[in-house]
Design a protein around this nucleic acid. Structure first.
Lengths: 147, 147
DNA sequence: CTAGATGCTAGACCGAGGTCTAGGTCAACG
DNA sequence: CGTTGACCTAGACCTCGGTCTAGCATCTAG
């Protein structure tokens, strides 16, 4: 392939997406630049396309829905003049990620406690089911609702 | 409701799940103890059930599939003797979360770069599209005239 | 007593995000 | 030449995790 263009198969290999998914993404408007085609209608991806797709993969992995990526792509495709909107979109996702990290840490705390508890249980011999420990009148943690 | 038993609606309120979802979770075997019923067949949740559900919510929020929660619930329901398996399951999810956090950080890095770049762009006046830094969209026309 | 919440079950429906198939084109290889 | 493999489109199909409806029973307040 001249000029560094890549076939869909090659792009699949280096993005980790399936060729099916690549075509889906294109249909859904996730690409920020139209994919070229060769003489017989086959897709030819530029290095820039691949780079963009790699970003898409990260966005997806961090929970950005296809529609949002599509909107971003649309803005980029539209060219200059909408930078503020792109920035807003990115900031929103930034916040979303931060929130996710907080939730993950929250769950991780819980799991760490349970894991430690089971490890104790297993190495020290049975001392009661860690998941059925009676909770004596406990210090009010973040109770969901006072009641 | 005597002895602190809660109705499904009350549980929905304090777990943030819908009553539909609560019934779904029960059908799918996510509950580690069978929910009691009152005289006329209505569910009566114990404080422990609610606590367990709150954990389920965290598990879900951290990407644990229903089937996995179900398996964990099943183990807990089965009682002592399978602690090693529970621990294994928890450790697997621990790893999964850690991996997710890494991915999120990875995406966050990317976004931070882009955000910074757009901020510069916007405050300092247009200086080129931050998303087209390396490769201007020079889509060299796909040949339409014969070869 | 009656209305209006709230609950019950069974099962249909939905959106997101893929994944796969059918049927066809094309280029290269032995 | 025929076959093989990568590619094309259109569209069906699938899983996951809910969400909602129908039709009925029960509780509670006025």
């Amino acid at each position: 392939m001249a000029d560094g263009g890549l076939s869909i198969g090659q792009v699949a290999q280096r993005t980790g997406l399936s060729v099916h998914t690549l075509r889906l993404y294109e249909r859904e408007g996730l690409l920020a630049s139209e994919v070229r085609r060769d003489g017989s209608g086959r897709r030819v991806y530029s290095a820039w396309d691949v780079e963009w797709l790699a970003n898409c993969v990260k966005f997806r992995a961090s929970g950005m829905p296809l529609t949002t990526i599509s909107r971003l792509a649309q803005l980029v495709r539209a060219g200059s003049g909408n930078e503020a909107e792109r920035l807003e979109l990115l900031r929103a996702h930034q916040r979303h990620i931060t929130e996710q990290v907080a939730q993950l840490r929250d769950c991780l705390d819980l799991i760490n406690v349970k894991v430690a508890s089971y490890e104790r249980h297993l190495t020290a011999g049975a001392s009661g089911d860690p998941w059925h420990q009676q909770r004596p009148p406990a210090p009010q943690e973040h109770r969901i609702d006072g009641a």
